[in-house]
Amino acid sequence: MRNKIILILAPVIVLFLIIKGLSFSPELVSFSGPTMGTTYTVKFYTVDNDVRVQSLKDDVDNVLLRINKLMSTYDPSSDLSLFNKMPSGSKQEISSEFAHVVDKALLISVMSDGYYDVTVGPLANLWGFGPAKGRDEPPTDIEIDRAKQKVGYKNLSLSGNVLSKVNDIYVDLSSIAKGYGVDAIANELDKNGIESYLIEVGGEIRTKGKKENGEPWKIAIESPAGGHNVAQLIIDVNNLAIATSGDYRNYFEKNGVRYSHIINPKTGRPITHKLVSVTIIDKTAVMADGMATAITVLGPEKGLEFAEKHGIAAYLMIKKDFGYEERVSSAFEPYLKNSIE
């Protein structure tokens, strides 16, 4: 009887050993969804089944919901909205995530001497680019001056996890929160042992590892003339983040004048220079996102000087009478070597 049992089990054991010894090629899978008034997409390689993919999507959705609940100006009950409603002289203890993003926004505000200002919210709202209903005509000079009195990053301070205001200011993290969302998703994928991925939230991107064939992830920088359907440049980005800021999507027109959603805190008005697109490569998406906005506000000359001064990898597109002119910082030039135009 014992011999018969061995004969019956032996084929099963052999089959198990064969299956265990097989090496399955990782499969590229993806999932996406809505977030922060836009969409996100995650692509990664895995040998696991669909159950893990769905579980990972649930984790990513929860991460993005948490960030939105912390930093959205469109949610009146978010931590940021509650802080903005507080009177002058108020203090609020905030989460470490919230503090991290505010810290980076304040850093960029200081570095740019206020051309990027984390408290630009009153002006953005006045021009119709905030949570309130949009407008189809510019505000008056009196309205602009009144809003400017509520703008000033020096009236905001962060000590540890305590956020304070010394004036009636309104913090707006929309220029940096998407970038942080990308970084937060990356942290979630890292925790789950994903070694190769591409994350995109509203155009802000971060990659890790390489594709299954050993090639790097290739990122297209879109042309201002062609939008999503035309690539101005295609570059290799490994283990880095890339963010683009442009004035050619979100705007309104009145009497033949186009008013961009990117506001210069110094003037209280939308930018009027010819710099239409800025792409930044950095280690984190939160810094790439904020720096792209800062350089867009600074304009082509000051923006490129700022990038060179701080060693920022920046790619600028400037509108000319006919077509566009490209300008790149020294730190961006190495990415042009393997680019495809």
Rank of each mutant, 00 (worst) to 15 (best):
V286Y: 06
E93V: 10
R52N: 13
M1N: 10
D113F: 05
L7E: 15
L80S: 10
R146I: 11
H273K: 08
R66S: 14
H228E: 13
G134M: 09
G256K: 07
G311H: 08
V162A: 09
V101P: 02
Y153K: 01
K4H: 06
S78Y: 08
K302W: 06
G311P: 05
S330D: 15
V14S: 03
Y170I: 05
I142N: 10
S157G: 02
I18R: 01
E27F: 00
T293H: 07
T279P: 09
N167W: 12
E27L: 08
E305S: 14
I199A: 09
H273G: 11
L156E: 01
K210N: 09
I205Q: 06
K91G: 12
I219C: 08
T46R: 02
Q232V: 00
D59I: 14
E200A: 10
Q92P: 01
I185H: 10
F322Y: 15
V230Y: 07
F31S: 07
Q54M: 14
L106D: 04
Q92M: 15
E325V: 00
E308K: 11
F24L: 14
L233G: 09
D141K: 03
R327P: 12
P122S: 06
E204P: 03
K148P: 06
K85G: 15
S30I: 01
I185E: 06
A243P: 03
S329P: 02
V110G: 10
W127K: 09
G181C: 11
T296Q: 13
I263T: 03
L304D: 05
T284G: 02
K266M: 10
R327E: 13
G128H: 11
D141C: 00
F252S: 09
Q232A: 15
K154D: 12
F24Y: 14
K274N: 15
N229H: 12
